[in-house]
């Protein structure tokens, strides 16, 4: 659903008052309002998944528990990578707002690469856990862990696709409306996904079960 929502954000801004700033009752951009609302809504989605995990993380009749599979150093590194992708993303937005679209494209590409590194790391981590005997159906811990981190991973992946799509559309100059705002919207989504990982990293990995 995020993608569809973003698709409209990217486009409904046009020169005739449907979505532009300055012509709205509050003077705020329709697109940004919609994005913030969407992110507010996502809080309840991830809240539900995190709570389910918290409830179930200690329940593993079969298979390993969290302490037997988690590797804090490994996950710390991949968390760091995602954290830094937020830095590169905000730099992309800053450049876009200064109209340096080329630099913005570059930073967005870097962001996407960092994001992909994170997702790759997550896939590797999953296979590692699977080797240690934690499958999706093994235990309540397994099901709720993979569901939570999997949902987050899908969000990162969607973010990567959006970044690459915007870079591609900027290249052929097919971005309708305000380019800086489109980049800012993708940025908001990206930072949110990062912020969710800040919660997951601490709650899921660092608190011993």
């Amino acid at each position: 659903m995020s993608t569809a929502a973003v698709a409209e954000h990217g486009t409904s801004h046009d020169d005739h008052g449907h979505g532009g700033h300055g012509h709205t009752s509050t003077g705020l951009s329709n697109n940004k309002l919609a994005m913030w609302l969407f992110l507010g809504s996502e809080c309840l989605l991830f809240g539900g998944l995190i709570s389910t995990y918290m409830l179930y993380r200690g329940r593993h009749v079969k298979g390993p528990g969290p302490d037997q599979v988690f590797s804090i150093p490994y996950t710390s590194v991949s968390s760091f990578v995602l954290l830094m992708s937020s830095l590169t993303m905000v730099l992309a937005v800053a450049e876009a707002q200064k109209k340096n679209i080329d630099k913005a494209k570059l930073w967005m590409t870097v962001t996407a690469v960092l994001g992909a590194t994170f997702v790759g790391g997550q896939i590797f981590e999953f296979t590692e856990f699977y080797r240690k005997g934690l499958g999706y159906t093994t235990s309540l811990f397994g099901s709720s862990f993979y569901t939570l981190t999997g949902f987050h991973g899908v969000h990162v992946t969607v973010g990567i696709i959006m970044l690459m799509a915007v870079v591609g559309m900027l290249r052929v100059d097919k971005v309708p409306g305000d380019k800086a705002e489109v980049i800012e919207l993708v940025g908001l989504y990206w930072h949110f996904v990062d912020v969710v990982w800040i919660l997951i990293f601490t709650l899921v990995y660092l608190i011993p079960a």
Binding site: D15, G17, H18, H21, G22, G27, S29, Q97, D178
Partner: peptide
């Protein structure tokens, strides 16, 4: 909201502070 005019968009100036 006005849908009538072809306007020069001024709303973006707020970004300059960044």
């Amino acid at each position: 909201m006005s849908t009538t005019v072809e306007h020069a968009t001024t709303g973006h100036d707020s970004h300059d502070e960044h």
